[in-house]
Design a protein around this nucleic acid. Sequence first.
DNA 1: ACATCACTAGACCAATCGGTCCAGACCTGT
DNA 2: ACAGGTCTGGACCGATTGGTCTAGTGATGT
Lengths: 188, 188
Amino acid sequence: MTSSDRPLPTKDRLIQAAARLFRRYGYNGVGLNDILEAAKAPKGSLYHHFPNGKTDLAIAAATWASDGMLRTMAASFENADSFEAGFATLCHKLAKLFELSGQSDGCPVSGALFDGPENEDFRKTTDHIFEGWISEAEHYAIRFGDNPDDARRKAELLFMLIEGGWTMARAKRSSDVLRHLPEKLAAL
Amino acid sequence: MTSSDRPLPTKDRLIQAAARLFRRYGYNGVGLNDILEAAKAPKGSLYHHFPNGKTDLAIAAATWASDGMLRTMAASFENADSFEAGFATLCHKLAKLFELSGQSDGCPVSGALFDGPENEDFRKTTDHIFEGWISEAEHYAIRFGDNPDDARRKAELLFMLIEGGWTMARAKRSSDVLRHLPEKLAAL
DNA sequence: ACATCACTAGACCAATCGGTCCAGACCTGT
DNA sequence: ACAGGTCTGGACCGATTGGTCTAGTGATGT
């Protein structure tokens, strides 16, 4: 039923198992053996599909997770009639996903890459992925009539609130942090 | 000159070296030998001062770093004449500190503890420390005349924006993300 | 039937991990 | 001078780490 069943090709099983584990335990908190066991793959397969080993796999996992996030964003803003409504829907979806993870999974990209070594490739990939999320949100804001400057600011605000929300939700083990995120802006 | 000179007692040297390294590389990204070398202390001293080893040291390091953050917050809001002004000063101070770290140090508490194992002690400590920051900000908001509900919301907003700002600043290697954080709120 | 190639399987490796242990150095009070 | 504690120094340990290597399997095209 879930997306990690056996029929998936080995490479995809590796990517998804890695994404799930990195997200929860961080890059350095996950050993190759953990990933291999979760993906039911031998070590030889890993190094066949990812010649550079763990680092390649982490980048693939973060990229795969980012695609999921972009789809969630698109689904949230698709039928929204304002930026704020889309943001609220997104927060509810993220809260639901957070619950399904056992209230413990934060940003999949930070988990897979930040935690990693002082690695410039990792940093660039992270920046690129985050920029993708922000510019996606920026487009939504523009579509709803914001001028470019305001749109960019709103998009960055959305990004930072979600990242901070993930952090706080993990610490509190509460999906409500994410769910009630939009209302926080009302205090201004 | 810096606070990590030799005259400091061994225990303090261990705490500060650990805090610095955990913040940059994460809990699992730092080995005991790294800390020992940075603190110029032998292994025996570490396990004398912290019988439970790495976990104890991480909690002590996060707590020490949290005290610094609380002092920075107090210094920012002390002479401010509004919550927004205090927030802006805080962001500038954090941006400066981020620059001094070589544009790579994020939240010291997430680095030391989140990254750690699925450890309930770590999670509780993180929650406790974060709650300390938020309630501190909440007091400032109340002092400037906000009603309790708005104050709490503002404080949580401040916290999440700073956490998200740290994440984005690391990805972009730019302290401007933190520095210009307050202006982002103007887009609403 | 055979060759080819993509892929799997896992034994194996040096390096590093967090942690234990104990001998001795250094203080203190008597 | 001696005793008792605190603290230091580092050798040592089993487990685990990411990574290498080679033998073998299975599908495909000819």
